[in-house]
Nucleic acid binder design. Structure first.
Lengths: 239, 239
DNA sequence: CGGCCGGTTGAATCTCTTCAACGTCCGTGG
DNA sequence: CCACGGACGTTGAAGAGATTCAACCGGCCG
């Protein structure tokens, strides 16, 4: 976070940004950040607001600075499936394509740094590291998607819910260490979102959550706040 | 296919290769092909043979020249999920990582062009187009994975089987045009593989196949050969 | 206050799985 | 040569897990 402390060239917004040294911005020089920040604009999205629409034209990309974004796809009859969750400092948008293959909506309140497609694509031409970062994020998303395919295709309802809670517990706080055995967080998704993520119904999700609660694997207060006293006990339920 | 016809520098194996102008090789100059072909070696894999093992060290990458490769992941108790199918001229392997996150096995007889990790990674340093191709293939795989998540999470057994047949019908023959309404092919997967791809049991797959057959959506001979007289009728069953 | 959204719980239903039997094909070995 | 065993596939009957339908609760906003 302090690599730029002696470099007054770094734009103020970037110097203060959590994501400055991560995500694609981590591959940019101070000069490049200056160039980008001229085109970029920070904006805030309320839960439910769309950042990208499935198979719709989009002329901007974004970096997530805070909050959780849900990626989803829909069948013609309205059935919906969440195909990914994104957290800071993830890059949002489909490189080199004007159409996004997915819908992206703010799950919680989201702050994002948006910039035009062309600005990034020009920068890439001169900075191969940037393309490398994009490739690496895409590979990470591919790994996550494939991991989730196993959950969707082969796990039971209770294993799915446990897997979801574990995913959130380990991703929502970028600062928490991997060795901690306890976790506490607010669920960024409604029961209905969770159901769409897991390929289940709301009722099934609700039943499995109460079961995990009565089995003392988790505590729930206010419907949204979850405490996991022992992550190992939770992961034992993931199959 | 004839772009190299006046260029005697292109290695003979590459000039004859179906994938010469596609996949990552399409981004290589004749000189680069020469350099790569010094390190590469074509090999053949029988159905069931492994090309990569999940979370195992791997020092080679490969391009698929012919056949179908299945990518899979396994849970600790043995439950298995196929997370992707790859066809010529797909690139196989995880760029910039020594461990593959998935197992890759030949489904049908596969011919592949293998080369050491280092050879490709060195080449990438001098040829950004190559990295672009890798990014594009990764994005394509990500899109496919997310499409399949919808199938796994939200479709019924019969919709899943129809979706699978449609996927094979439209991917197994690289030459068929997208406008053709009829398709005929040999299934590259056993019923058990299909079940693992769809998150179902073999019995359910078998029942849904016979149902599609008695409904005259498909014809099956020899358990493996499938004729789809009307792809539109099939896609009506995909949900 | 009334209505709506998000969530939980119960009972009935249904889809898919499980368990079991059986058929075919094919390579092996007595 | 044919009998045997195993891999692959289909079909039937019983069972389990998730869905569907319905009722209900609490909080919030107009």
């Amino acid at each position: 976070m302090s690599k730029d402390i002696h470099n007054s060239n770094v734009p103020r917004v970037c110097a203060a940004c959590e994501a400055r040294h991560r995500g694609i911005c981590g591959a940019m020089t101070p000069d490049e950040l200056v160039a980008m920040s001229k085109h970029s604009r920070q904006s805030r999205f309320a839960p439910g607001e769309a950042l990208l629409a499935e198979s719709a034209e989009s002329t901007t990309y974004a970096n997530i600075m805070r909050g959780v974004v849900k990626l989803s796809k829909m069948l013609s009859d309205g059935r919906q499936q969440l195909v990914g969750l994104q957290f800071a400092p993830d890059f949002l948008g489909r490189p080199f394509a004007s159409e996004s293959p997915v819908t992206a909506e703010a799950a919680s309140t989201v702050e994002a740094c948006r910039f035009p497609r062309a600005a990034l694509e020009n920068l890439i031409l001169h900075n191969p590291d940037l393309e490398r970062r994009l490739l690496e994020q895409t590979l990470k998303e591919l790994d996550e998607a494939r991991d989730w395919m196993v959950t969707l295709g082969r796990k039971t309802a209770s294993e799915k819910v446990a897997s979801f809670l574990f995913l959130i517990a380990t991703h929502i706080d970028p600062l928490r260490s991997a060795t901690m055995h306890k976790a506490a967080f607010d669920l960024p998704l409604t029961r209905s979102d969770i159901a769409d993520f897991l390929g289940l119904t709301v009722e099934t999700v609700s039943r499995q959550l109460t079961r995990l609660r009565t089995d003392n694997i988790i505590e729930i207060t206010n419907n949204r706040h979850v405490v996991v006293p022992d992550l190992d006990a939770l992961s034992d339920r993931m199959g």
